[in-house]
Write a protein that binds this DNA or RNA. Structure first.
Lengths: 107, 107
DNA sequence: CGTTCAATTGAACAGTCATTCAAACATGCG
DNA sequence: CGCATGTTTGAATGACTGTTCAATTGAACG
């Protein structure tokens, strides 16, 4: 059976459910990462300066966010730079992301 | 240890995290329930007319939504009437709920 | 009262998740 | 090259979740 958090990784072309995307966001660490990235791209180390979790754990969470297409990764030298996926950034309002099924705005 | 979905049930007076509320919402059935309730209060049977899940399963999901204070229940005769928690209904915009930590708008 | 309808509860199970550990990879520099 | 830094991966584990089943509650009605 398919794990919910893997939904966006499959190649079946299915439309991922709103709930499956929310599931990825519904985690304290991952939510904190996304909120920080709303202020601009950051390296893993920079993200962790304000989070302070085991770097290997953060990497797992970043992978989940990547697979859900919520963030993008670009490599720069030995650093990985993460950013909120550009197609999700809602226009006009600064701190909100558009998931298609729904939009989430942060205060 | 405390289960995340029970966070809002505790009596410790802790501020429930945004992620813990999102976790309750991050389920296809529960999300569908909330979306239907955004059009107005419904009985359990009415909710299930458009969902078609085992009534006992729906009851479990409704309990989770209640414990997260996302919906309210009022008993009318032998029916239970559910509604989106009034304090969550964002003013102005019709189909959106304000979780405090963030606001979710449906299309 | 006994029955029916509407909804809830608790226990149990299988599947999924977050976290940890050990190991590996990639890049830059001496 | 060899080493340090930054990041990722895979396996393992314990906890949590969604679902099902059997049993129960509460209210209306004959």
């Amino acid at each position: 059976m398919k794990a919910p958090l893997d939904v966006l990784l499959d190649d079946s072309g299915e439309d991922p459910s709103c709930a499956s995307v929310l599931k990825v966001l519904a985690d304290n660490t991952r939510l904190a990462v996304v909120e920080r990235l709303l202020n601009g791209p950051l390296t893993v180390t920079e993200i962790n300066e304000t989070l302070g979790v085991e770097s290997t754990l953060l990497s797992h969470h970043l992978k989940a966010l990547r697979e859900a297409k919520l963030v993008t990764r670009t490599r720069q030298g030995r650093y990985s730079v993460y950013a909120v996926a550009p197609e999700l950034v809602a226009r006009r309002k600064g701190r909100s992301i558009d998931l298609g099924c729904c939009r989430i705005s942060f205060s």
